[in-house]
């Protein structure tokens, strides 16, 4: 189940960044992917909200910074706002 969630997150991120799914590593995050810039980040949040059919929580909006974070949000989790 966790792997399926990570794969969905990978597909979503790949679509936003216009990259191949296979090129996105498990530890991908801001700063590690050249295409993940400010506009891509906006597209990512909007794609996530479209996928989930609801606005993200304020905490998740500000905390998303990695592939793992995206998978957590897709699974309905709440990320830690501080400490990144």
């Amino acid at each position: 189940m966790a792997d399926a969630g990570l794969q969905t997150a990978r597909q979503l991120l790949a679509a936003v960044l216009e990259m191949e799914v296979a090129d996105i590593a498990d530890d991908a995050g801001i700063g590690g992917l050249t295409g993940w810039d400010s506009l891509a980040h906006m597209r990512l949040i909007m794609a996530l909200e479209a996928h989930m059919g609801a606005p993200l929580s304020p905490g998740n909006v500000v905390a998303i910074g990695s592939l793992q974070d995206i998978a957590t949000v897709l699974a309905g989790g709440e990320l830690s706002v501080t400490g990144f």
Binding site: S38, I45, V61, V62, A63, G65, T82, F84
Partner: peptide, 22 residues
Amino acid sequence: GRNYPSIFNYKAMGFTCEGVLR
């Protein structure tokens, strides 16, 4: 407001989100 590019830039530069005023 939900200025996503601005949020990205602060995060990418090492700023800490000290709070969210909902």
